[in-house]
Amino acid sequence: MEIPYTIDDRPDTGLYNAKLGIWLFLASEVMLFGALFSTLVLLRTGADYWPHGYEKLNVPLATINTFVLIASSVTMVMSWASLRLKDFRKHRLYLWLTFLCGLGFMVIKGIEYGTKFSHHLYPSTDNFYATYYTLTGLHGLHVVGGMVVILYLLLTGSRMWQSQPERFTNRIEVVGLYWHFVDLVWIFLFPILYLL
């Protein structure tokens, strides 16, 4: 049985199914991160003392990571635009760059975590580090999840371009929406955790 509306828009929603699906998923993700942000606000405002992020965390590394993630968003959207221009070679180039940016982000995050662990700073240390590890850890898991899907679309998943190019283009758009959301979350995490 063929899955309906993978290419054409549904007449009632005006969207293909995967696009509506990813937006509903992203709405649930807003609530997930919102709950954690809300917890941070509660803990921070209720604490007698809360350190400034820049005193405890590595701002230069996090700034580099911000640039890396922003760059990955651009390469992601360029990868989709290349497919719409029927330029598969450029699409792959941009998608590989997106994957490598994701990898770079995680490597830098690993260095940051490694330094903290070497100084015996764990989630159990205090509420500051508990929220730091929870929020950045969950965000990091989202980056890894996106990288897994991107890698699939770079390897076996890319075969769909030969048989169903429009459907493959839609898949890249949907993955792109997820990836931009991950970037969006970091845009708020960075100043809240590191700079305030």
Partner: peptide, 13 residues
């Protein structure tokens, strides 16, 4: 951050 987020949402998304 809101300006940056809006740019990502409006143009990339």
């Amino acid at each position: 951050a809101t300006i940056k987020g809006s740019l990502v949402a409006c143009f990339f998304m």
